[in-house]
Design a protein around this nucleic acid. Structure first.
Lengths: 391, 391
DNA sequence: TTCTTTCATTGACAGCAGAAAAGAATCACC
DNA sequence: GGTGATTCTTTTCTGCTGTCAATGAAAGAA
């Protein structure tokens, strides 16, 4: 969360103001009285927090007369003026850069992406800054300033100083990304791990709103997991957390690149599924779409591969639930396209492995458009802009 | 954390005072300047927080002139007057009650235990209150008041309202323990799960001091795990967390009473080890001590049983470390008596299953005297007395 | 002795949030 | 159409907390 340039008009200066702002941001239009109840602040404190935020335009009175009480004076709704500020979110993968321009409510206004031929920082960074400049022009078109830039990178990322410690896909080591991009663009930059960024988006604007403990499981090229405990995203003492992809499910299972056998990723990630499908059918299947087609065509061997994958995911979720007891698990990721094939395996394996009341945990799915990763990056920028406490 | 009676002289009334007090409590004698640095309060704030605490006697000036700076005015050390308050901690198991009288620094002054013949609440509660009265008399002997009573019970315990939801060992359901014992004894009562209580003790007075993320793994009749994330003990949305005993290590492993196969508890808990030893030797071994003797006698089959158990524990720890990335894992519990037999299995399995930098996690052991569980209960009472923020 | 360094305290001050009360806007009822 | 009840919102006042800046205190160094 390094800000390379000071931003002039931070919406929330005091803890109470920040609390009020984030409450309105996450819980839609609210009356002042409702804000007071939710935040446990006094009504007076809410009034005093809301006023300056309205003066600078981040909050507005909602004209819509939605919920009036059965009795008494009608309440005035307060909501965030989404268009008051814009943010850029960027996800850098090994072969492309996805960028979005998002508003204060993290709604995507513009999405762009460019393919990469070279993953060297020297090649990626110019493409990245060019993309940022493009989106800054778009923002000018809206007549709104961009107040922050969030970057999401897979791997070991130190969010506090904005350094990419090691990203296996990009083959980057110790790149001070926040500093580089900050000086190149003049924007306040946040850098975070991609799954954590997605978790932030879910926590503030998605299915994690209002929950203090939940897990986000992503299924796709890899198996990832973002965790929110006590209302805060878990980073781990050494920058690693949520590594459920390398939970070992079956000591006799297929070998994993990590050196173990039967890791979730070695059973349920795209490459593992493709290999399974090739072995089952003998055909040279190379894309997830092809494999999916075969499965939906009814090939029992292929369906069995997906069923096993679902079971592995379900057991991994069961492990997370047993360890942390979250309120909800959100399953997302590109692999969700095959969810109908996973579903039964996940459900059964989860039910079998979750212990006691932990099984009451709500397991749900959530589709993930490809710009969602970049939206997660934008969410971290918004979070930083608001000055929320992420210690 | 229900207090049934208000306590008259809470040491810390303001957040800053509570912070200062807990800092001094955990980090031994400190100079005011050092407190200011650690808490990031201003020196003035420290002075103003310390004074009232000294006036009521919870903090005292330490006469020992320990660390004087190389230059400048020598610093005065401040420390907690351990003897200024006493607390009772009680662990209730299926067949006995263990109780300790502990001072403010959670040092045990007196320990008692009584055996139980009946685990019905109607039989246990009178024995419990009698034990409390005994310890209150002991406290009178010290001339110090008992300021709180902590109870630790295994199973699903709601610490916020002090209700035992379900304790399998005791066969208790929905017992409002805090209320009952509070009215019977007139003391402020806290009730918590036993492993969480032990975790609190470790966090405040043990190997977890100063760490914001660590795990405590207990090995014995069962396999338990207490977690501290973001500086707070994890309770789980449904009151269940740290259930690593039912992580499934091997789908083909021995059946577990939870319905799954190959749970850690079905491999590494005392009953599983005893069964394994019986199968390996054909002898009617019924106690952990006997099994241990056979193993130390060199029986290779028995040693193999312990080695497998160690491996299961190591893999469970690996799972926790992969998911949460704690700074440290503390292994404790009665089963530690066999640690020499577990050690290699734990070490190897942990090293194999921990992914990436998570493997840097410090895994250590800590012996656990039988009163330690009761000490944990006392720690929760101290925490509640101090008014620490455990939300 | 005088300066430097560090620790500790003091008093003034600013800011935040709560309490209480007043004002505002509506409905229900007579 | 008044009047009262009810709920939302704001205002004013007040207390508390923690920071700031200045001061005092206690050593060693020059």
């Amino acid at each position: 969360m390094r800000s390379t340039t000071p931003h002039e008009a931070v919406p929330a200066t005091t803890p109470a103001a920040s609390l009020v702002f984030t409450t309105v941001l996450s819980h839609g239009p609210l009356t002042r009285a409702e804000i007071a109840r939710r935040t446990r602040l006094s009504p007076a404190a809410v009034t005093k927090a809301v006023r300056p935020l309205m003066e600078v335009g981040y909050l507005v009175e909602d004209v819509d007369e939605g919920a009036r009480p059965a009795l008494g004076r009608p309440a005035n709704l307060v909501r965030v003026d989404a268009g008051r500020a814009l943010f850029i979110g960027i996800k850098v993968t090994g072969d492309e850069i996805i960028a979005v321009l998002a508003d204060l409510c993290c709604h995507i206004r513009v999405a762009r992406h460019v393919r990469l031929t070279d993953r060297e920082p020297a090649a990626v960074l110019p493409a990245l800054t060019a993309l940022v400049r493009e989106l800054l022009l778009e923002a000018d078109g809206f007549g709104v300033r961009v107040r922050g830039l969030g970057l999401a990178v897979s791997g070991d990322v130190d969010r506090t100083d904005g350094v990419v410690r090691y990203s296996p896909f990009l083959e980057w080591r110790d790149i001070p990304l926040a500093e580089i991009v900050g000086t190149a663009t003049g924007l306040p930059v946040t850098v975070d791990n991609d799954v954590r960024a997605l978790t932030v988006a879910e926590q503030w604007f998605g299915a994690g709103v209002g929950l203090s403990d939940f897990a986000l499981v992503t299924v796709g090229a890899g198996i990832g997991c973002g965790l929110v405990v006590h209302g805060r995203v878990v980073s781990g003492a050494h920058g690693v957390a949520g590594e459920i992809g390398h939970l070992s499910i079956d000591p006799l299972g297929p070998p994993c690149h990590c050196g173990n056998n039967g890791c979730v990723e070695a059973i349920a990630a795209d490459p593992a599924i493709l290999r399974g499908v090739r072995e089952a059918t003998g055909r040279p299947v190379t894309t997830a779409a092809e494999a999916l087609e075969l499965a939906h065509g009814g090939d029992p061997g292929v369906r069995e591969v997906y069923a096993r994958a679902g079971e592995a995911i379900g057991r991994a979720i069961g492990s997370v639930v047993n360890v942390l007891g979250p309120e909800r698990v959100i399953i997302s990721g590109e692999g969700l396209a095959a969810y109908d094939l996973f579903a039964e395996g996940i459900r059964d394996a989860f039910a079998a492995s979750a212990f006691g009341t932990a099984a009451q945990c709500d397991v749900m799915t959530r589709p993930l458009p490809f710009e969602e990763w970049a939206r997660g990056a934008a969410a971290t920028a918004i979070q930083s802009f608001i000055g929320s406490d992420t210690r």
